[in-house]
């Protein structure tokens, strides 16, 4: 089968300078010159002296830098450690305060419960008294109705009962 030209067309085309955007990241001649001069400076530096042996200053600076870094790390760890300890003690204090408050609240609750039970008892007593007084009042009310009828029939003859002395119930019966 004959191959087709249209199946072999480039999927991406170079944009070329006609479509070049003006963006700051474009590689400039000065960028190249700068990179190249840095590379050259390094080359010159490397070419001149043998490494390490005749550069005690660099060695000492390196050792001091490492030592300072190690010291800094130890100090940081120690400071961090103290900070954590302080944090722990503060947390413990807060916990103790909370515990005290909790105990107080528990004691208060006990007192309130005791008071409540006492009040309940008093209410029960008062209720009982109320019932008693109610019963007494009822019994007293009944006795007043009964006792005046018994006193007039047994003690005073009927002829001598004055109209004013006739109990109202008898008066009423007579009238009827």
């Amino acid at each position: 089968m004959k191959k087709k030209f249209e199946d072999n067309v480039a999927s991406q085309m170079p944009k070329t300078k006609s479509e070049e955007p003006t963006l700051p990241w474009k590689i400039d001649e000065s960028d190249l010159a700068k990179i190249d001069s840095e590379s050259q400076d390094y080359k010159d530096l490397a070419q001149g002296a043998p490494p390490l042996k005749t550069r005690p200053v660099f060695l000492i600076a390196l050792v001091l830098a490492i030592f300072a870094a190690a010291l800094f790390m130890v100090a940081s760890i120690a400071i961090e450690n103290d900070r954590i300890k302080i944090g722990i003690s503060e947390k413990e204090k807060e916990a103790a305060i909370l515990q005290v408050n909790l105990d107080k609240a528990a004691a208060e609750k006990t007192t309130l419960e005791h008071n409540a039970s006492q009040l309940e008892k008093r209410v029960n007593d008062l209720s009982a008294q109320k019932e008693l007084f109610t019963a007494v009042l009822e019994s007293l009310t009944k006795k007043e109705d009964v006792i005046p009828a018994e006193t007039t029939s047994s003690q005073v003859p009927p002829s001598e009962i004055l109209p004013s002395q006739v109990p109202p119930s008898e008066k009423q019966e007579k009238r009827e």
Binding site: F5, M13, P14, K15, T16, K17, S18, W25, K26, I27
Partner: peptide, 24 residues
């Protein structure tokens, strides 16, 4: 013609990789 496809795509990727727009 097929080789041209490869060439043009390579040039396009060079532009992209180097952020450098080629001439005409």
């Amino acid at each position: 013609f097929h080789g041209l496809k490869i060439l043009l795509e390579t040039l396009a990727s060079i532009e992209k990789d180097f952020s450098y727009y080629l001439g005409r």
